[in-house]
Simulated scan of single mutants.
Amino acid sequence: MNTKIQIQRNCLYLLLLLSISSSTQAQTDAAKKYLLSALDLMKSRSINKNKLDWNSIYKTSLEELKDARTIKDTYPIIRSAQSKLEDSHSNFFPPEAVASLLLGYKQTGQAFPYAKYKLIDGNYGYLSVPGIGCYNFKDWDEYASHILKGIKELDNNELRGWIIDLRENDGGMLQPMYAGLHPFFEMLQLVGSRDADGIDGYYGFKNHSVYYRGEKQHTFNIPTVKLRNRDKTIIVLTSRTTASSGEFITIAFSSLPNVKLLGDRTNGLTSDNTEHRLSDGAFLVLTEGTIINSKKELFDEVGKGIQPDILILDTQNREKIIDAAKNTIDQMKKK
């Protein structure tokens, strides 16, 4: 009887070991599959994909995987592989960070990035457009709608010109910025991106939607605004803080014939990022293109930034830079 019980116990113990081993192997296999999916995205989409030693990157990453047991264990390996992409802009957001981005500003207790606008001296339309760093579509609508509200109110006046302030725009999501400023841009090919294979694509806006390469990217629940003062001089204020999507907007404006850039050169993150959601909800953000303007000029030197037409280094001196903007508008109006 004791022998029979002992045999049963040994069998149960063996089954438990096999179950644990099987579970561990399944986790290891899932981690490997997850890592390879991330590496495959980098290899197929990175702006520098044709310049990198992918055999070395895969080999090193898989060697680092030997101690990984879970998907979470692959995060440092993915970040290490991303550092080899040499684009200074790609990123990785684990699921908990993505959850915060999806919740948006108000649900996470953050101040909402509303645009600021006012009429200066009765006939200069001033609009300050901040960056937006969330992936909540209701927030996108509110952000863009508030910009449009400011534009519409200012446009009800007989303006001498516009002052668009991007000095504090440190980037984030391009689509809501573009949607909010669509009265200036519409479907004109003002700013785009060139990928690693030399293929160009441009952004546009039509019927409440942002397009890229003619394909709809996102549809907004926002009003459509038509400008009365669209052809008036536009002065765009920039600084070293103006970055990423803020630089896309800078280039879009600079491609218009009635625009002057005034301030300091921009930050120099002049590349196009795309978010890829992985199987556990993490975001793999990859730099997949470089900014081009309407003339197909390429802004591919990281850190160089966009040079203003009128250089003012002291961009925090508000009175000085606003006076310079007004004077430039007046001078251009006389021509």
Rank of each mutant, 00 (worst) to 15 (best):
G305F: 00
L148V: 08
P113C: 03
K216G: 11
R265L: 01
L101E: 08
L101K: 14
F253H: 08
V129W: 00
A324N: 05
L102D: 13
T241R: 15
Y124I: 02
R230K: 15
S61E: 03
Y13A: 12
I57E: 08
L159F: 05
D300T: 00
V236P: 14
N273S: 14
T270D: 11
Q175E: 15
D314R: 02
K33V: 05
D280C: 07
R240A: 12
T219M: 06
A325C: 10
S88D: 07
Q110Y: 13
G246D: 05
Y126H: 12
L284K: 09
I199M: 07
D272T: 07
M42E: 03
T241Y: 07
N91R: 09
P308A: 00
E153Y: 04
I329D: 06
E301V: 12
K116E: 14
W54R: 14
S83E: 10
K49R: 15
I222E: 08
I78G: 13
G214P: 10
G192F: 00
A325R: 04
F205D: 04
W140S: 11
V98N: 04
I164M: 02
Y114I: 00
N273Y: 02
L101Y: 07
T328P: 06
L154R: 11
P94Q: 09
A99D: 13
I291G: 05
T290M: 04
A99Y: 08
K320C: 01
N10Q: 13
E288I: 14
A30D: 13
K116I: 14
E319P: 05
P183R: 04
Y143G: 10
D314P: 03
T60V: 06
K59G: 06
